[in-house]
């Protein structure tokens, strides 16, 4: 039985999650894959094709626009989503068919984004999150994906299990200031 691994990065500090904290792998009413869908949430499921990366960003941007973000916050969130979705396509499914589920939620001024796949999972999540580390150098992956997700979001959580899948959960507070972009 392969081990569940989870890691949370908050304010630049990394901590390992216990197995019970890795909620992605609990069976929840047969809907394993994302947290329960709240009334205000948006859930999107799409095929693991690179053409859909732009679509995932567009839907995210439209959702986040409701929170009145600055252009910089919007760019940060789009980049983080792009990295998470690209990881699922390239690493989790490695070009094979599969589906990616994305949940968008807002709690007051905080945006929560989950990206889940049922792909190969990661053997060593800590190693995968090291900057410049990549398992696919032949694809010219820069190994910066997780570093960008960490840098652009306030909180990043990764839960993974080899042979089962991966969940990326990211949070970002949108500054509640008045602005005219």
């Amino acid at each position: 039985m392969e081990k569940v691994q989870g890691i949370r990065v908050l304010d630049g500090r990394r901590e390992l999650l216990t197995e019970t904290e890795c909620d992605f792998f609990e069976e929840k009413a047969g809907e394993r894959g994302l947290s329960a869908v709240g009334e205000q949430d948006v859930v999107l499921e799409f095929g693991a094709r690179s053409q859909n990366e732009g679509f995932a960003r567009m839907v995210t941007a439209a959702f986040v626009s409701g929170l009145n973000p600055t252009l910089e916050e919007l760019a940060d969130i789009k980049t983080a989503v792009s990295e998470a979705v690209t990881n699922a396509i390239i690493h989790a499914y490695a070009g094979a068919a599969g589906s990616i589920r994305m949940r968008l939620a807002a709690q007051n001024t905080e945006i929560i984004i989950e990206v889940a796949d049922r792909g190969v999972g990661m053997e060593d999540v800590e190693k995968a999150m090291e900057p410049m580390y990549t398992t696919r150098p032949e694809l010219e992956r820069s190994g910066m994906g997780f570093a960008f997700m960490e840098a652009f979001m306030d909180e990043l959580e990764v839960q993974t299990k080899p042979g089962t899948g991966t969940l990326i959960r990211m949070k970002k507070r949108i500054a509640a200031t008045e602005h005219t972009d």
Partner: peptide, 14 residues
């Protein structure tokens, strides 16, 4: 362009 992610870094480095 106004958007680039880590894939762009790979293109430049390569």
């Amino acid at each position: 362009i106004t958007f680039m992610d880590s894939s762009g870094i790979g293109v430049i480095m390569g």
